[in-house]
Design a protein around this nucleic acid. Sequence first.
DNA 1: ACAATAACATGACAAAAATCATAAAAATTG
DNA 2: CAATTTTTATGATTTTTGTCATGTTATTGT
Lengths: 236, 236
Amino acid sequence: MTKNAQIPLSCELCSLRDKSIFRDLGDVELKELSDAKSCVYFKKGQILMHEGSRPNGVFCLHHGKAKIFRLGTEGKEQIIRFAKDGDLIGYRSLLSDENLSASISALEDTHACYIPKSALLHLIETNPKFSLNIMKLSCHELGQAGKIITNLAQKSVRERLAEILLLIDATFGLDEDDNLNVSLTREEIANMVGTATESVIRLLSEFKDDDLITVKGRKIKINNKSSLIKIGNVYD
Amino acid sequence: MTKNAQIPLSCELCSLRDKSIFRDLGDVELKELSDAKSCVYFKKGQILMHEGSRPNGVFCLHHGKAKIFRLGTEGKEQIIRFAKDGDLIGYRSLLSDENLSASISALEDTHACYIPKSALLHLIETNPKFSLNIMKLSCHELGQAGKIITNLAQKSVRERLAEILLLIDATFGLDEDDNLNVSLTREEIANMVGTATESVIRLLSEFKDDDLITVKGRKIKINNKSSLIKIGNVYD
DNA sequence: ACAATAACATGACAAAAATCATAAAAATTG
DNA sequence: CAATTTTTATGATTTTTGTCATGTTATTGT
């Protein structure tokens, strides 16, 4: 990772702050955070953190996208979740005092802020509201994880793929041509759905034949969201 | 739920305290907690909390066992995790300020303490160490959830069943005859593994034929833990 | 731009797991 | 304790999904 590449932005001026975990910090705290953090840059494909390691801080994504994934028994990636601008990543193992349970890699060139453990813990210890926000975040993710577990256990690959397309839409939104605003290989989609790459390829073709989506390479456009909702049995 | 049935124990005298989330409370805090909580009793099969609802407190299990589960699309239970003596349950939705993402039911007659939301939040706001313990708990569970997700996505039913038997062992331990110390139907095991009841029945018979386990009704004894570890590809 | 590499696509087949059917055994309850 | 319901067991079959093979098309790096 490259230190201090671009974004010389201070946390005080960060446009993402209101939507981030740091939304409730006071001026002094923001200044301290700004002084403690460093700006880092990752090229597409680079690893931000490595499963099993013990990082000494967390990242807050400033501009970019990342995947959080675990390696299964046969060395196959299982993508647990995605991260987008403003998201805090790596906090889980830091707070549970465990090795990292997953790796993080950049889905595209990504600017992030690295926040040392000490700065994060200081905030937690001194700012109850921040502390509560962290709890809210981890507890929310825990609820999401329960939903994913249930889907993996009970839904078909077809249902899960439909749901994942909707999740990608909800997470990253659309680009200027209304395509899903992230470039994922079929293999990465499969690693999120929890299936074989070939199955994703086949099912995407089916969805395309049924005009549910338009596919041009890695650009995917959702034409019929309500049908995908039905196919995926998505109720929320 | 029946109020004040048995266990008139105060938190100060609770033998489970040292292993519970309340391990770091001071004397005054313990007294306040003790005054705020109520003792409740559930018969086997009773629901402690209902998915979708908004409880106004949490439970700490005093003596008993519970399953935490979600209902999937076809109304099938997916067991997310088990709870045993000393475990705190229901805190997730309370802290994330969401509806309950799962139901909780008693696997056997269970004594629990009901702790009002206000008492829990008061502790969080005033005791940073307690607050950190809660974070540690939710973050640890989040890591576990990631592992479960990866297993469901990548392991075979056979592998998952082997792993679940070991998980039950690790969670509930053994009874006086060295059987797994919990009574689960084959269907419940299937709802944990994420498969059909018949598949669990067949695989348990196979494990029995291979002398990995001994089965007498719902009593299951693990004869060969290391083989189960191998079959389940369990590396931790 | 071009070669090398990685990703995509599709068919054929195999394996895993679900479903359906039926019977026997247990557990529960009036 | 007899009756009813639930659970367990097993076989037969279907469905779903994964794997392997092969060719094509995109990407990437020099």
